[in-house]
Design a protein around this nucleic acid. Structure first.
Lengths: 247, 247
DNA sequence: TAATATTTGTACGTATGTATG
DNA sequence: TCATACATACGTACAAATATT
């Protein structure tokens, strides 16, 4: 009986690796969808002929990838397949290396900018009136947050996700959200204050909406540039002074 | 004693969640680097005051994210922080929904194209003579593979990674590799044959190198377009005929 | 409100497999 | 070959969460 999958490093695949593959196979073969229930641990143990400990470790591996979702005392379900694993992995990377973490953040910002500038033509084309109005509201929300001193972050995240939504590319949308999450999680640990530039940032958001409404790709790209430029400057400045790693 | 971390959904965080956070914290606080050894399971159990089962499940969660790496019979180490989790997650997503999987692939191709076109200016600017020569060799390698009928894939992957390397953006490089991996894993399951268009693909690769050598951004972008156009056509065609899900 | 069944979470003990020297 | 250290696997028991009655 040949091993039909990659032997990872060498030797035989571990039992847990086998079990994770079997569970994935079960989900695919049963044509389950996110949210659908899986058999209980007991049933799976019996079906796959493994102990509960081994099965649980396999389940935990799959849960980390959001391929399954476990609810205590209730059951196990097919996961939402979100990119939480990517967020966790990148966040940890950002927190891990004090000397390199600014590099990680710069990389991240560059990708976000690449998404919005590289898709500028399609974004400007496809943003309909409803979405433009919604974006207006979100910018107004940013201003309210600024005035009242409340948190910026949720509204900002929603803005950038809504911007990419009309592309109809679920991967880009999710990556946008994921990268935003990572930035929001890592930046505070680096002592990067946001508030000083909020006014500038809000203006850039508004410029993006205006450019999109005017179907002016060039102006839109410039507005995106203006949106990310201060952040990049700040990170670069922080890199140069090579601050001590806090905590 | 207040719960100092996010309550996730509701209630108290599970012990396992706490343990995973503690291990991550330990790695960061100890300033460990990828490849560095962690304490043994026994020591960690004692330090964190948890049973082996709980600890092991936490370890498995971290291993799935490549935050730690376990070597059987040898020990546990800080992981390479690769994007294997992203690859696994996206691959599974592609395999999961027969009706949508072409959509997933199209999304993927679009992002790959976005990377190469959006970064065209910098790529063309920064590719030095050595790298251009290396790219020449890789194209020659593609031709040899085509003539001898051997596998295309490794050389193609190397080409696209080398293309992005001079950007110095590790995230883009890794995402490029990850997306390539996902495509290579999912495409065969959809019955998308590659060989028919190999000649066309090789020509596009060569055009990309030539354009880069001439520092001609416009030509480079066009070559990238020509590289991905046939793939996208093929996926679109396959979508329309809505084939039965094999296996 | 309370009791109960179901399901996942945690703990511990023991035996086995694996890598290194 | 052997010894040691370590991870892997299994089984059982009980705790905690959830839903139903």
């Amino acid at each position: 009986m040949p091993a039909d999958v990659r032997p990872a490093r060498q030797g035989r695949p571990s039992l847990r690796a086998t079990v994770t593959e079997q569970i994935k196979r079960y989900i695919i073969d049963s044509e389950l969808r996110p949210g659908d229930p899986l058999p209980t641990e007991g049933e799976l143990c019996e079906t796959l002929n493994v102990s509960r400990s081994s099965l649980r470790e396999a389940i935990k591996t799959l849960a980390a990838l959001d391929i399954v979702e476990v609810r205590h005392g209730f059951g196990t379900y097919v996961g939402r397949l979100s990119l939480t694993a990517l967020v966790e992995s990148l966040t940890f990377r950002g927190l891990l290396s004090p000397t390199d973490d600014f590099r990680v953040l710069l990389d991240l910002i560059q990708v976000r900018q690449l998404f919005e500038q590289g898709m500028a033509t399609q974004i400007v084309e496809r943003l309909d009136v409803d979405r433009l109005t919604a974006l207006d509201d979100l910018v107004a929300g940013l201003e309210r947050c600024h005035d009242s001193g409340t948190s910026f972050v949720d509204t900002d995240r929603a803005f950038h996700r809504l911007l990419m939504e009309p592309l109809g590319n679920e991967l880009i949308s999710q990556l946008t959200g994921a990268f935003w999450d990572v930035y929001a999680l890592v930046a505070p640990h680096l002592g990067l204050a946001d508030r000083q530039e909020e006014t500038e940032t809000i203006a850039a958001h508004r410029a993006m909406v205006d450019a999109a409404r005017a179907r002016d790709v060039t102006a839109f790209v410039a507005a995106v540039e203006a949106h990310y430029a201060p952040v990049r400057r700040r990170i670069t400045a922080a890199t140069e002074q090579h601050p001590p790693h806090q905590r």
